[in-house]
């Protein structure tokens, strides 16, 4: 076990993957000399050279489109999109090529590409720097979508994503980059799995990314008031691994799904739909959601209102219990 920040855990995960396989490339805007605007790729260019850590032109479609070509050639590119709101120029290449080349070629051309995207708000940023677009990608067949929430997962999930022969959209909780945690010596869990991060008997809370910590804090606060919350970190958003959620809901009868993203047609709606299909007779209350609002991400002076916090999570829990 080593203690490090989430950003450093990603960095060491990238480094390990690059050492293991010379076909792994890191590419993106400012990822070389600067080490990325969040320093996630710090030092990699120095150690692996500019042909494996590419400071690319400022062009997101170019980053994804050339990564597709490099993958056809046999490379395993790891692309960095600088901020969540900048991914959309590359969305066409992600949806039209990255997600479909394997299917189009019936497996003859695999697409082992990882697209890293720092996501979510809470950092007081200007427009386009705080978004949670994960549901847009989860909706696209051919992609896999994951979100890490802590340094251990950050380190191991990025390594597993790079090792995957499928394209993985990898969401990193940017406001947690500098928070520290322990990183295991060995792989703690498969990539596409969810995990119960706190056991509880009264209400199940499912969440991912930056809000896992918020939900754990809410659970600790609720415990003081006598409510026992089970917290599940979904980790994989597509495919969803809902077995642990079903098991939990069958015991608690109540589920609150939490996310920063707007609720409409989202990962949280998908979880709600599937839980009611599988656990209909176990539910004591409808599946409730605590999410960002169905608005564009607001100016940062409003984000404390926009983002689900400890109180809003507990409000959701209370509503589920009081149904």
């Amino acid at each position: 076990m080593t203690t490090m920040t989430l950003a450093k855990a990603l960095n060491s995960g990238l480094r390990a993957a690059m050492e293991l396989d010379p076909k792994v490339l890191v590419m993106g805007e400012d990822v070389g000399k600067l080490g990325g605007v969040f320093r996630v790729t710090d030092g990699l260019a120095k150690d692996f050279g500019e042909q494996r850590v590419l400071d690319t032109p400022l062009s997101e479609s170019g980053i994804i489109g050339t990564a597709v070509g490099l993958a056809i050639r046999g490379f395993r590119p790891v692309c960095e999109i600088q901020f969540d709101g900048f991914v959309f120029p590359g969305f066409d290449q992600i949806v039209s090529q990255l997600a479909k080349v394997r299917f189009r070629s019936q497996g003859k051309v695999p697409m082992p590409v990882v697209v890293r995207i720092p996501f979510g708000g809470g950092i007081g940023a200007v427009e386009h720097h705080s978004e949670s677009p994960e549901s847009l990608f989860a909706h696209v067949a051919g992609l896999k979508v994951v979100a890490c929430s802590n340094p251990d997962d950050a380190h191991w999930m990025i390594r597993q994503a790079i090792a995957s022969d499928d394209p993985v959209i990898f969401f990193e909780p940017k406001r947690r980059y500098w928070e520290k945690g322990e990183v295991s010596e060995t792989e703690p869990a498969p990539l596409f799995s969810s995990r119960v991060v706190r056991s509880g008997a009264d209400v199940t809370v499912a969440c991912y990314g930056p809000l896992v910590k918020t939900c754990l804090e809410a659970a600790a606060a609720a415990e003081a008031e006598g409510t026992d919350i089970e917290v599940i970190d979904l980790r994989s958003l597509s495919p969803l691994d809902l077995g642990p959620v079903f098991g939990s809901v069958r015991r608690t009868g109540r589920l609150v799904v939490v996310s920063e993203a707007p609720s409409e047609a989202s990962v949280t709606s998908e979880v709600a739909a599937r839980v009611q299909e599988e656990c209909f007779h176990s539910l004591e209350a409808p599946v409730l959601r605590v999410t960002g609002f169905d608005t564009p991400y607001p100016p940062s002076k409003c984000e404390d209102d926009y983002l689900p916090d400890l109180d809003r999570v507990l409000d959701g829990v209370d509503r589920a219990l009081g149904w």
Binding site: G65, T66, D92, V109
Partner: peptide, 23 residues
């Protein structure tokens, strides 16, 4: 490569492939 129907996508894919040849 397989036919690309979305107009122009393949120009980036081809460029990436060519970068790989160079690397």
């Amino acid at each position: 490569h397989l036919y690309t129907i979305v107009i122009g996508n393949q120009c980036l894919n081809a460029t990436g492939y060519a970068m790989g040849q160079k690397f």
